[in-house]
Write a protein that binds this DNA or RNA. Sequence first.
RNA 1: GGGGAGGUGCCAGAGUGGCCAAAUGGGGCGGGCUGUAAACCCGUUGGCAAUUGCCUACGAUGGUUCGAAUCCAUCCCUCCCCA
Length: 398
Amino acid sequence: MMHIDKQISLIKQNTQEIIPEEELIRKIKRKGSLLVKFGVDPTTPDIHLGHSVILLKLRTFQDLGHKVVLLIGDFTARVGDPSGRIKTRKPLSVKEISLNAKTYREQAFKILDATKTIIDYNSRWLAKMSFSQVLKLTSRYTVARMLERDDFSLRYRNNISIGLHEFLYPLMQAYDSVALKADVEIGGTDQKFNLLLGRDIQRDYGQSSQVIITMPILEGLDGKEKMSKSLGNYIGVTEASSEVYGKIMSIPDELIFRYFRLVSVLSREEIDTLEKDFKEKKLHPKEAKKKLALEIVRFYHGEKEANYQDERFEKIFSQKGVPPEISSHFVNTDKIWVVELLRSSGLVSSGSEAKRLIQQGGVRWDGEKVKEVNSILSVKRTHTLQVGKRKFLEIIKK
RNA sequence: GGGGAGGUGCCAGAGUGGCCAAAUGGGGCGGGCUGUAAACCCGUUGGCAAUUGCCUACGAUGGUUCGAAUCCAUCCCUCCCCA
């Protein structure tokens, strides 16, 4: 096992808080291998780079010889985590939950070491709890303390409803730690309250309290909001390499090094060097970003694909060309109305949208801007249809 | 249990019988400038058909009216005050 100081330094990297740090050191000294809990809500079936911040940290734990429990909150999902919410979540159906859990698991293993990961489901103990057990649990906490949470108090003050069951969520999550006898629980900074509650509840149940580690919340492509699927500002770990590369290129400059630190696997030293060059203007922002895009694509899609996307990007965007490989759409007429083609090929969702785009000069046929809404295109062999800057389609005569 | 306020487009929020597919802002999309960055500027943002047309839409269902997001009834949901 790696020396303790080295371990702690690796664990500590990029974390927001470790509470309490001394206890983490003590636990490692005493037990050697710790049980690290990470609870996931199977609400979003797609893992994105925002989630990867935590998963990468878990991976570090695994590499250091610790055990990771990926706890699927299949039972808590029926309530929905109120953390940071301004509205009550709508509950998921049992079917959705199991499907999402499956996807989550598969995707998480793009980052985690499957052989060192224990998967568990909290329905295993929560579903069986009797009402008196629930009472025992709920009596450990007060309404006033629940309302200390910003999200709850905000909702309360703004006259937005808070379901009683939402108060139960943090307690359920805390109880998970009891059931698992977790040594460490990790989560985003927005989870701090829930994680801390785990410490209290474990103590109430006669266990030693878990150490909690919070990780920063990654901003999405807009650079403002946190990365989330519902906001559409995310990069999914299973997205096509071209998408991942392109999306990285569209992040605001201010985020470049935050992304390097939180979602790439480059060493701290390498990143520091890059950042130094960047600040001294020896490294152009675009080049820094390309390096980042290359790194991320390499991690999820491999070296070869990363290099390929790197070249491809230059070709299309810097030289305004057409990507070498694009999906195809077949037509079996010689002549077709642009609007019709745009719609039938699925590039746009309605005729009105197609017309709008044409009027705004956003549609190109073989590189030429389509000027008239009424244009009839003659399809000879293979043509390129482009919408906006990023959407391409190869139109082939059947 | 009693009293009051309210539910509008992706979000926020106007509108309180026809001029409303619905102001304004945000977001999104397209264009320009660029480095697929930021900032800025312009345009656009229900669908179908096309130059004055039709359909769907203002919590749900019925009703009044030539005509309703706007009035009435019932229902569902949310919030506030009192108990």
